[in-house]
Design a protein around this nucleic acid. Structure first.
Lengths: 224, 224
DNA sequence: TATGCGATGTAATCAATGATTACATAATTC
DNA sequence: GAATTATGTAATCATTGATTACATCGCATA
């Protein structure tokens, strides 16, 4: 949580910290970075300000993070766990064991998190701000989510709930592209240009439903 | 005279200048910015380097562009025209007057251009790098593309080629999100993580087909 | 408990960059 | 040909990421 040194300082050239050593600077830096990023966006984040917010000198963060990117990567690692949590949570609320419903839940869990955590979504989606492939955490959590999606799609197909003509890999890529595109359109500020007047979450849900309906197999007794 | 030493002797670059005034600095700056952006990415573009490439002092660009963003906006204005051209070109190659085919053509025109012009796509998609809404050109060309898509979708629906249950606005948003997501996944470097082993253009075409098939109405005599 | 060494933070500094201002020079207009 | 405007230069500033030399702490070990 917060430290007492963030309180108004009586002497501004020295920090109000009692000890020379911070105690837990790594966590404090990540927390400060998150706060700043949420307040002013990723583009307006400087290591100096992070250091200032944590109450240390401008060079201190570099003892723990070799670069600004490394600091943001730590932020991303925390973020992707929360994204995965949002997806799992959405899945867990389902009553029936229906793969098409699971597909929808995964999509909405992803979209909800992106909508509510736009700057974090931006960070974990970037491959220039952070060192994605250099982070075991980022790679593995991302892969777990991908495999989860693959399992659901495969099951939907095997159970005849999805068009048999569809290839699993194609559906995986398409589904990911679709939610990624929706999330990024929202975050990048394209919704206004596309006259999305409804609340974003409604528009996203409606669009997701449209996509999923396009995958669905006709019910077996649909002939007349 | 100072500027003589800034001129590369016997060099073939077009940055050499004999006169104090450049002559056409605005165009030269945009061209230089494009070259640098394509070579080193948007993130590594500095106004200084643009100025250097154009053979002028670091401050000169600010006589013509009030900020780095204004310069990039000019680049974006040129880019969006080329994007629109790619879409129109794709449409013009169609033989039959089939709205579903037109939908596919628009999508592929968009995706092809994004794939072949990744950094330009990034620029025109950004709302922080450039002043999108402050540019009449960007807004109007974007809107024209949106209206074009709307017309095609409406016609597909009216002609019974698309599921009657679908709302035009929903299809528009979904279609845009889908191609935007594909393009950004590719440009942001997500394809490798999603095990897209085929050539990107093939994967994109396959995915686009999948999406469009999901919209298509069953042929009237499809019952058995 | 004393001490020595590695870990952690500070201060000073560098280079790159976006941007501003005062000034110099060219081009244009009358 | 002089005055005016447009255009480019030079100098400078503030911010920032990053490095280095140094100060300080605190923990392990004897």
């Amino acid at each position: 949580m917060q430290f007492e040194k963030t309180m108004p300082k009586t002497k501004d050239t020295k920090t109000a910290r009692e000890t020379y050593h911070h105690g837990n600077l790594v966590e404090a830096l990540v927390a400060a970075a998150i706060a700043i990023v949420e307040e002013k966006g990723v583009d307006n984040l400087s290591v100096r300000e992070v250091a200032k917010k944590a109450g240390v000198s401008p060079g201190a963060p570099f003892r723990h993070f070799s670069s600004k990117g490394a600091l943001l990567t730590a932020v991303a690692e925390q973020a992707i766990h929360r994204l995965a949590g949002s997806v799992e949570q959405a899945l867990s609320t389902l009553a029936a064991d229906d793969p098409m419903e699971q597909l929808r839940a995964v999509g909405m869990g992803y979209l909800d998190w992106a909508r509510l955590n736009p700057t974090h979504f931006q960070i974990i989606s970037s491959r220039t701000l952070i060192d994605f492939h250099g982070s075991e955490t980022l790679v593995s959590v991302n892969e777990a989510l991908r495999l989860l999606l693959g399992d659901i799609i495969r099951r939907a197909r095997d159970e005849g709930r999805m068009k048999a003509s569809l290839d699993t890999d194609d559906v995986m890529l398409s589904a990911r592209a679709f939610v990624y595109g929706l999330a990024r359109m929202y975050i990048d500020g394209h919704f206004s240009e596309w006259k999305v007047s409804r609340p974003p979450e409604d528009a996203m849900r409606q669009a997701l439903d449209l996509f999923i309906e396009g995958l669905r197999a006709a019910p077996p007794d649909a002939r007349r």
